[in-house]
C-alpha cells in the first residue's frame, strides 16, 4: 500500500518538475516585450473602444500615444482634456487643451416641413434608403430619419424624435466620438465646438439646391441668400454650393445672422430666452 502512495507522489512530483521546466523555457522563448507604459496609458482611457480617436480601440490608441513623439495628433474625444492631461503626465509630454465638442444635427426638416414624395418600405436603415434614392421627401439632402446615427452611438446620446422624425443629441451624454458622423449617409451630423455654456450658432441645413428649389422642398431650408454672410462682423460665415456654413472657430456668438435668416435655418441654442426676444426687437 505504502509503495503505491510513494510511487504516486514521486511520479507526480517528477512530472511536475519536468513540466515546470518546459513551461519556463516556452515562456522565455515566446516572451512578448511590451512597453509597460502602454498598460498605464490604457488604464487612463475610458475603455469604450468607440474608435472616436481614429484607432481600432483604446489599446491601439494607447500604443500610438506611447510611440508618438508628441500628443498633437492623438486625442481621446470621450475622455477629453482631463484624460489627455493624465496621459501626458504618464508619458512626460505636453498636451494642448482642446475645446469640448459635440455632435450637431444640421437638418430641421421635420415631418410637415418637407413634403413626402414616395413611401419607403424596407429595412430600417438610412444606408439602405440612401442607396435606393435620394430621399422620400422633396429634399434630397435632408435627414432620412431611419436612425443609423442613434444606433451607431455607443453612449445613448442620440435618440430619434418620433414627432419630428429627426435625431436629437443629448449634449451631456455626447462625447464627440464621431461615430454618428460616420454613420450618417447624408453627412448631416457635424462635430462642432460645444461653446461657452453650450451656447452655439449653426446652420441647420445642408441643402445644396438653388434657393427657389430648396425653399420649395423645405420651409426651413438654407436658400443661400448670403444675408448672414453679409451680416457677420467676424467673417465666420461662408456660402458655398448654395448653403451657408458657420466656422465655429471664428464665430463670436453675436447672433446677428440668426436675426437675418429669412427661413430660420440658422439656429442659436442654449441662449437665455429674453436675449432672443431682445434681438428681434432690435431689428
Amino acid at each position: 500500500m505504502s509503495t503505491i502512495i510513494i510511487l504516486t507522489v514521486v511520479s507526480l512530483s517528477v512530472l511536475g518538475v519536468i513540466l515546470a521546466v518546459i513551461l519556463y523555457f516556452v515562456a522565455q522563448k515566446f516572451k512578448v516585450v511590451e512597453d509597460p507604459r502602454i498598460d498605464q496609458v490604457e488604464a487612463c482611457l475610458p475603455g469604450a473602444n468607440c474608435g472616436g480617436c481614429g484607432y481600432a480601440g483604446c489599446r491601439a490608441f494607447a500604443e500610438s500615444c506611447v510611440k508618438a513623439s508628441n500628443l498633437d495628433n492623438n486625442y481621446c474625444p470621450v475622455g477629453g482634456n482631463a484624460v489627455m492631461k493624465n496621459i501626458a503626465a504618464k508619458l512626460g509630454m505636453e498636451v494642448s487643451e482642446k475645446l469640448p465638442m459635440t455632435a450637431v444635427v444640421r437638418c430641421s426638416g421635420a415631418c410637415g416641413k418637407r413634403t413626402a414624395v414616395v413611401e419607403y418600405d424596407g429595412t430600417a436603415s438610412c444606408m439602405a434608403k440612401s442607396a435606393l434614392y435620394t430621399d422620400s421627401s422633396s429634399c434630397q439632402y435632408g435627414c432620412l430619419g431611419e436612425g443609423d446615427c442613434a444606433r451607431a452611438c455607443k453612449f445613448g446620446a442620440i435618440r430619434m424624435n418620433a414627432e419630428t422624425g429627426l435625431p436629437e443629441v443629448d449634449e451631456d451624454k455626447c462625447t464627440a466620438c464621431g461615430a454618428c458622423v460616420k454613420a450618417c449617409p447624408q453627412n448631416i451630423i457635424e462635430l462642432r465646438n460645444k461653446g461657452p455654456k453650450s451656447r452655439r450658432v449653426f446652420v441647420s441645413c445642408v441643402n445644396k439646391d438653388k434657393g427657389a428649389v430648396a425653399r420649395k422642398a423645405c420651409s426651413v431650408a438654407c436658400i443661400g441668400c448670403r444675408k448672414c454672410e453679409k451680416a457677420c462682423p467676424f467673417g465666420a460665415i461662408t456660402v458655398e454650393d448654395n448653403v451657408a456654413y458657420i466656422d465655429f472657430n471664428k464665430c463670436r456668438l453675436c447672433r446677428k445672422c440668426v436675426a437675418e435668416c429669412p427661413t430660420g435655418a440658422i439656429h442659436a441654442v442654449n441662449f437665455p430666452q429674453e436675449t432672443n426676444k431682445q434681438i428681434k426687437n432690435d431689428e
Binding site: V118, G122, Y133, S136
Partner: peptide, 8 residues
C-alpha cells in the same frame, strides 16, 4: 399618390 420605393 406617392409611390412605394423599396430595395429589391
Amino acid at each position: 399618390k406617392n409611390l412605394i420605393v423599396s430595395p429589391s
